[in-house]
Each structure stands twice: as structure tokens, then as C-alpha cells.
Write a protein that binds this DNA or RNA. Structure first.
Lengths: 157, 157
DNA sequence: ACCTTATTTTGAGTCACTCAAAAAACGGCC
DNA sequence: GGCCGTTTTTTGAGTGACTCAAAATAAGGT
């Protein structure tokens, strides 16, 4: 291999490296692979991330993927959400405090930019002794696909 | 035993029975015990419920407690919440869609009546193809106790 | 009191992680 | 470019919080 040229410059590769360096994290293949897996895949599970990472790094372990995701989340490079009854999911969209809609039928998750101009519900009434740092909103309902799906019955007789 | 008088009429015992009957559930000792455990204990975990239930029903199993809690939740007699990173918790306060504040330090949970007059965030912008049934809000921050606690440092040197 | 069905108990199994120790990879420095 | 100390990753085991299934028991209508 050449010594000066990047081995395999994938698009925006340097950008991902910059993200890592910016938070004081070392640039490693597993970390870059995880970031690439997250790109364009909002709300991906740890399992799915490992699967993708293994395409490029066949030896990647589930454990290291958790390590990476946790490290990235701690530095604010990724956000972790965990809708009730679901495994944790990770997304690259951070900084804005957007919310999520979870389909109670198929589990699909979609991003929701909160309609209310200013942070909604950020000033809870009562409980003034509680200092709120963040308000997380989860919408439960049915996604477009499931609404168009036939009713789910017990038997199909 | 007498045939007409209740064996051991605990306060509001009949009320609990009525709740069960009202939803078509049979009245059983485990169910009454679980309901009693939930009374006055908002946000209690399944583990804690079994412990309490065993005071009156030493043979109660964890499994049956889960069965009961799930059955009660399905009929709307109890609400189950599951803040990210925490085990599920159950509460008797249902019907109003109140929210919760979770302390990121000690895990304490407090109820929050949403300040906004009309259901907040219930009309998510974008994603009009998603039909929202419920909006769940979780506030993350610090409870009164933890705010008054000294800063949590690495070492105490 | 009986009988059918709903519940509870017993016992095992799973999912989604987490802990710890050993091996490998970064990257600043010479 | 090679060395070295520290950070990461791998390997392997362990845990919490439930869930599944079959057998035993309890409700409650008749």
C-alpha cells in the first residue's frame, strides 16, 4: 500500500475523522465503520450496526460496537433513544432536540420536528423543585403503511 | 366462616374488586394484592410489587406478578412506563395523560401535569402520514434532593 | 357441589446489554 | 520510521428484566 495516500478514501471520510478528533477520540476503523453505518440510517439498532460494520470489518465484535456507540453517545456525536418495549436505537442527528413517532404495530420510527415554536412542555407545572435539562417526546400511533394494512384479527377463518 | 360478611374487608377492598370486575377480570388474591401494593406507590417496579405482595401472599411468584400487571395494564387499570435505561414501572394513576420527570442521578420519578392547556406536541409537524394516538413526555433532569447533593466527582481525595 | 375456563405456579429460556481481563491498535515523540 | 504508553478492541463470561410453555390450582356460573 502507498504510504501517503488514504487507503480507501470513502466520501466524507475525513469529515467523520474530524468528528472523532474533535471530541478527543482516536480515529479507528471500528469507529469510522460505525459512523458510516449510521449515515443515512436513522434509528438503527446496535445489532444492525454490527451487521453493517462486519461488511467491512468481518472481525468486529458486538461488544466493540457497543463500546463505540456508547463512546460516541457520551461525546454527543450520536443520540441514543429507547422507546418503551424496544431495544436501544442510535441516530446521527443530534443537536436539535427533535422527537420521535413510534408505530405501535410495526415499530417503525420517524423523526418529528416539534411543531410548537419554543421548546414545548419544558416548563412543567408543579414540581418546580425539579430542574429539567431535557424534554423527550415520544408519539405512539400508526405509521402510514400500517394504517393502510388490513385490520389485524385473531383468526383469518 | 360466615357466608355473607367479607372475610377481611380491607379499606376500599370492594372498590378494588369492582375495578377488576368492571374489566371482566376475575377477582383473585394476587390481583387484589398487586392493586393494594400499587396504592400510594406511584412508579413502583415489578420487583417491588412482588416483595409487597409476598407480605400477604408468601407464595406469590414473580411470574404471576408480571401476569397480573400485564393484565391490569391491558385493561387500562394501571399504566406502565419505561424510562430509557430503567426497568418498567407501574402506576395506578390512569386516564389523565400526565407526564414524568426522571432524575438522571438517582432515578427518582415524579408526576408532571403538563402545563400547556391543550395536549402539547400532539400535532407533530411533518409526518402527517402518522396518526398519533398518544404523546408521551419524559423530562430528564435533577430532582430536588440531588440538586442539594454535593457534586459527584471521580475521586474524593 | 361440579365443571369449565381463567389464573397462578414452576421451571426453563431469551434478549439486550454489561463487566473484566487479555490482545491489538493509535499516535505523539525521538 | 520505530518505540511506547495509553486507548481500543476482542474474547469470554455474566446479569437484569422479562417472556414462553406446560402443569397445577382457583373462580364463579349453573
Amino acid at each position: 500500500m502507498s504510504t501517503s495516500a488514504p487507503v480507501d478514501a470513502s466520501p466524507v471520510g475525513d469529515q467523520l475523522e474530524a468528528m472523532l478528533r474533535g471530541t478527543g477520540l482516536k480515529v479507528t476503523q471500528p469507529r469510522l465503520a460505525v459512523l458510516r453505518a449510521l449515515q443515512g440510517r436513522p434509528h438503527i439498532s446496535a445489532d444492525a450496526v454490527v451487521a453493517l460494520v462486519r461488511h467491512e470489518l468481518p472481525t468486529a465484535s458486538l461488544q466493540s460496537t457497543y463500546n463505540v456507540l456508547t463512546a460516541l453517545a457520551e461525546r454527543g456525536l450520536v443520540r441514543r433513544i429507547e422507546p418503551a418495549g424496544h431495544a436501544g436505537r442510535y441516530e446521527l442527528r443530534v443537536g436539535d432536540n427533535h422527537h420521535h413517532a413510534v408505530c405501535t404495530r410495526c415499530g417503525a420510527i420517524t423523526d418529528i420536528d416539534c411543531a410548537v415554536g419554543h421548546a414545548p412542555c419544558l416548563t412543567p407545572s408543579g414540581a418546580n423543585d425539579f430542574s429539567v435539562m431535557e424534554a423527550e417526546v415520544t408519539f405512539w400511533g400508526q405509521c402510514a403503511d400500517c394504517q393502510n394494512q388490513p385490520q389485524q384479527n385473531e383468526a383469518t377463518s
